[in-house]
Nucleic acid binder design. Structure first.
Length: 585
RNA sequence: GGGGCUGUAGCUCAGUUGGUUAGAGUGCCGGUCUGUCACACCGGAGGCCGCGGGUUCGAGUCCCGUCAGCCCCGCCA
């Protein structure tokens, strides 16, 4: 309302409410930028059009005071228009001012000057009510709302039902740490907050709700990152009698619609890569395909070079892979060594490199490269080779990190601004410290072609799991699920669970599957990440109204916090040690 | 659990090789000002240099520890 005034409104009487954004007190005249969610408009006070009492009150206004003003919309004098403000052609000449609520001087400024940095993140979170008054955050939350609204409409039109699932649920034995909620009426027992509604939506499938949707809150008690919050929101869906292509079609259609809302290009069909291809060509299961730079395999070309590092890498079953950087010779030795330390930070023992020059080459790798090797590499004079040798397990993450660093160091131009990708056929299992655990979760259907290897070579078994990747960011994961109880038991056993344990932890799921479960599958998309990536926001905290810190604290309200001994007694909980370092805000 | 960066006025920051009374901009308070829009001008108040310990004649500055925020690794079915 406030920010919507235009020159067509000139002459109208208006009553506006809002916050005092900034004031410019000229003595006789006084200008105030009035702010509400719609934007800013200048209101002016002067002895010729403002009641005396209101005028004197106006001179005492401070930042963030809440006011209501009545007056007339007037065209500003020609030389006093502000082209930078949408409402800058007009102002409200105030007849009467009423102070609805005075504000103490804000701890952090809502207004931000052109060259001014934002207040420290800690202060922005502590005084969140003030930070949220900033236009940028209001715009972010508005877009978030619109994307969620569009999502509900889109799936509603496709016949999906939004069904709520419990927040107080059963603890899940694998996966992330659960947030636990003690039961008062059942001493020693705990609910868990859901890491995802996975099992519930599968139960809904067996119950015949064949298209399910939920904008679902999920909780995982793990350490945080810039793109990870302890509680987060997912667009969670599941459908019966589907194949991966059905899911892809729906999600591609959704992204096209959301793209219209957020002005992002999302033209179906999206590119597809198998997990194996993605790892082979980009070293990552979520490559950023805004750049096409790919890994080359030089195992054959360099494997016979007179170098122990290179030879032994191939002899022990590894590969020699790397990047051919056209024009990379322009990078200084220091810059190339920075790339090497990126590789080390990502777990590689090192990164070999060579620049091809007019006569031969330079760099540690070049002493092993004869004319034959140079030719095989495809390098021309002025190019740079970056090479990692060893098992893919080590070199892939390193090369992926190097790829990003090269793109930045060379300032390579984006080849497209919005790169969508499906990554398919994720491994069913992964190995960690000698233990097999699910690559995604234990309910994923093994790839039908690989079933025979389930017992003998489980780590080679692919799954019908897929990820949606946007500009190198994992926006969502899904899969076709197991609907056969026997198959589900076999997977639990492959994960090392005994029959009793299976019955205790997943008996209710198996019972449901045995009752006539349809084939089904689905996907969950991270709303927070989606909004962040669509807005190109710096942090997830900029698209969540009340986010947690990296230490999983809420600074505004001061959660978590201690509770009284009476409350603990009711919950049958005894603390082993007095809490340390608890702050009261 | 590990590594890195940051912490100085309400806010954003500067602070030399360890040296006297710790500065700037903005905000705040007071004053002048009728077309400003980062209003301008004059004056003023405002500091546990995150916290604790150490080295030193002397610490915002060096060392150790600790707390908080951020980033990364591990972790995130």
């Amino acid at each position: 309302m406030v920010g919507g005034l235009r020159k067509e409104d000139a002459g109208r009487k208006e009553r506006l409410s809002g916050w005092v954004h900034r004031r410019r007190d000229l003595g006789g005249l006084l200008f105030v930028d009035l702010r509400d969610r719609s934007g800013l408009v200048q209101i002016s006070f002067g002895p010729e059009w403002t009641e005396a009492e209101s005028l004197s009150l106006a001179h005492r206004l401070g930042s963030e005071d809440v006011v209501v003003v009545e007056g007339e919309v007037e065209l500003r004098p020609n030389d006093a228009r502000n082209p930078e403000l949408p409402s800058g052609d007009v102002e409200l000449r105030v007849h009467r001012l009423e102070l609805l609520n005075s504000a103490r001087t804000p701890q952090i400024p809502v207004y931000r000057g052109p060259d001014e940095d934002l207040p420290a993140e800690e202060l922005r979170l502590r005084h969140r009510h003030l930070d949220l008054r900033r236009r940028e955050l209001q715009e972010n939350l508005r877009l978030r709302h619109e994307l969620i609204l569009e999502t509900r409409n889109y799936f509603g039109n496709l016949g999906f039902l939004e069904i709520e699932t419990p927040i107080l649920t059963k603890t899940t034995p694998e996966g992330a740490r659960d947030y636990l909620v003690p039961s008062r009426v059942h001493p020693g027992e705990f609910f868990a907050l859901p890491q995802s509604p996975q099992i519930y939506k599968q139960i809904l499938m067996t119950a015949g709700y064949d298209r399910y949707l939920q904008i679902a809150r999920c909780f995982r008690d793990e350490d945080l990152r810039a793109d990870r919050q302890p509680e987060f929101t997912q667009i969670d869906l599941e459908a019966a009698f589907v194949e991966p292509d059905d899911i892809f079609r729906w999600i591609e259609g959704l992204m096209a619609e959301l793209g219209k809302v957020a002005q992002i290009q999302a033209a179906p069909p999206f590119r597809r890569l198998t997990h194996a291809e993605a790892m082979d060509r980009f070293g990552s299961d979520r490559p950023d395909l805004r750049w096409s730079l790919e890994i080359s395999d030089w195992s054959d070309a360099f494997g016979t070079a007179d170098s122990r590092i290179l030879q032994s890498a191939v002899e022990t079953g590894g590969r020699i892979r790397g990047f051919l950087i056209r024009g990379g010779g322009e990078l200084s030795r220091k810059e190339v060594e920075a790339l090497e330390s990126v590789a080390r930070a990502a777990g590689a023992p090192g990164l070999l490199w060579a620049k091809r020059t007019g006569e031969g080459g330079s760099g540690p790798l070049s002493r092993w490269l004869g004319e034959e090797e140079w030719e095989a590499s495809g390098a021309r004079s002025g190019d740079l080779l970056l090479v990692a040798a060893g098992s893919d397990r080590v070199t892939s993450p390193a090369l992926s990190a190097v790829r990003g660093a090269v793109i930045e160091a060379m300032a390579l131009p984006q080849e497209r601004s919005d790169a969508w990708l499906w990554v398919l056929d994720f491994p069913l299992f992964e190995e960690h410290e000698g233990r097999i655990h699910p690559g995604h979760h234990p309910f994923v259907l093994p790839h039908p072609e690989d079933l025979s290897r389930l017992n003998d070579d489980p780590l080679s078994v692919r799954s019908l799991a897929y990820d949606l990747v946007y500009n190198g960011s994992e926006l969502g994961s899904g899969s076709i699920r197991i609907h056969d109880a026997g198959m589900q038991r076999a997977i639990f056993r492959a994960l090392g669970m005994g029959d009793q344990e299976i019955a205790r932890k997943f008996g209710f799921l198996l019972e449901a599957l045995e009752s006539g479960a349809p084939p089904h599958g689905g996907i969950a998309l991270g709303v927070d990440r989606l909004v962040k990536d669509f807005l190109n926001a710096a942090s997830l905290r900029d698209v969540i109204a009340f986010p947690k810190t990296t230490a999983a604290r809420a600074l505004f309200e001061g959660a978590p916090s201690t509770v009284g001994s009476e409350e603990l007694r009711e919950l049958h909980i005894e603390l082993r040690a007095a809490p340390v370092g608890v702050r009261t805000p």
